[in-house]
């Protein structure tokens, strides 16, 4: 009986695997030159993790998310982060009715009820910490209390976008908030000259709505996603050797000096103040299973871990204050050094 279910699961997974490829292809229609970002988003979707997008202005983050939302299907809600945004603005919509009386309707989070599958929080670092804290609850529990009752949002996936150009009138996301995001994806301007030329001169990219409309709607069934995500986690195998490897990586992040890792000009004994929360490491393995499945394998290999490591773990490494200003480059170098030094298998 058990073997039959297993075979069923594998057949379902096979069908979903082709759906995932279609999803990647459809999203790539709207956003060119961002194959890696699309792959990371796909991993996040199948790992049911929330995504923090980072990047310069005008690289197509919003377009990308709209394309993703359209391809996933389900309802889509969005809100712009501003300095005067209050938590209640997420759940309530207040206005004056035609009869002149004030009305309170469900806000962007609740408007679609359970069907909400993609919630896009634009410029999250412009919102105040009290908004962040509501968002954290939303992300962690997929439920929110409003109108004196609990709303369940089982298919919700939050995509937040952080503009890293400006610092004024912004509220840096606290470590706890960043830890709750499954993955932090940096969206860079494509470097390939041909793609850059297309982006600037091809009229196709001038009309975003037409671009999004070209993406096939509902390639994935958002209601099935939690089930299929669980099936992936159950059916993709992480061997003892791989488990040991991941644990070694974790130790190496926390005590890089003991693992024989050194970066030029850095006191390795002082560098790390805290690194790789257990949640972060479990997210990493979750992501790696999805990555393995997307690559058509039923076993996780170190390459899967490496493919996601920087995006999932780097923002969970906290450096000594004297190194904090160089955080981004240092953690990236540290991750590279860790992969060069920790033996596998």
């Amino acid at each position: 009986m058990a073997s039959v279910t297993k075979r069923d699961a594998q057949e379902t997974l096979g069908a979903w695997h082709s759906a995932a490829s279609t999803f990647e292809k459809e999203v790539a229609k709207a956003v060119v030159g961002q194959e890696r970002v699309i792959r990371l988003l796909t991993v996040a979707i199948f790992a049911r993790g929330h995504v923090l997008l980072e990047g310069d202005v005008g690289v197509g983050k919003t377009t990308l998310l709209r394309a993703v939302a359209r391809a996933i299907g389900g309802a889509y809600g969005r809100i712009e982060g501003t300095v005067d945004l209050m938590p209640s603005d997420l759940v309530y919509y207040t206005y004056l009715g035609e009869d002149g009386r004030p009305r309170v309707d469900p806000g962007p989070v609740l408007r679609h009820g359970e069907a909400l599958s993609v919630f896009f929080f634009n410029e999250i670092n412009r919102a105040r910490p009290q908004v962040h804290s509501l968002l954290l609850r939303l992300m962690a529990e997929r439920s929110v209390n409003a109108f004196n009752r609990d709303y369940q949002l089982p298919f919700l996936q939050v995509f937040a976008d952080r503009n890293r150009v400006e610092r004024e009138e912004t509220f840096e996301l606290p470590a706890a908030a960043r830890d709750r995001f499954f993955i932090e994806i940096g969206v860079e301007t494509p470097t390939d000259p041909e793609i850059r030329r297309q982006l600037v001169f091809d009229p196709r990219f001038h009309d975003v709505d037409a671009l999004i409309a070209a993406v096939k709607e509902g390639v994935l069934d958002h209601r099935e996603l939690p089930t299929i995500a669980a099936a992936i986690q159950q059916n993709v195998h992480a061997s003892p050797a791989l488990q040991k490897y991941v644990l070694d990586l974790w130790t190496a992040i926390q005590k890089p000096a003991a693992a024989g890792i050194s970066l030029p000009g850095i006191n390795m004994a002082r560098l790390i103040r805290g690194g790789g929360s257990p949640r972060g490491m479990s997210y990493l393995v979750r992501g790696a299973r999805v990555q393995a499945w997307l690559e058509g394998r039923d076993v996780v290999v170190p390459e899967d871990i490496r493919a996601l490591f920087v995006e999932i773990i780097a923002h969970r490494i906290f450096l000594d204050p004297i190194y904090e200003i160089r955080q981004e480059n240092l953690t990236r170098d540290l991750c590279t050094a860790i992969f060069a030094a920790v033996p596998s298998p």
């Binding site: 290999v301 390459e303 490496r306 992969f339 060069a340 033996p343 596998s344 298998p345």
Partner: peptide, 19 residues
């Protein structure tokens, strides 16, 4: 297999994955 892996790593100067 492990011994050969370590030799590949030592020759490259860093850990070498299949890819």
């Amino acid at each position: 297999l492990l011994a050969l892996h370590r030799a590949v790593d030592a020759t490259a100067g860093h850990v070498v994955f299949a890819e």
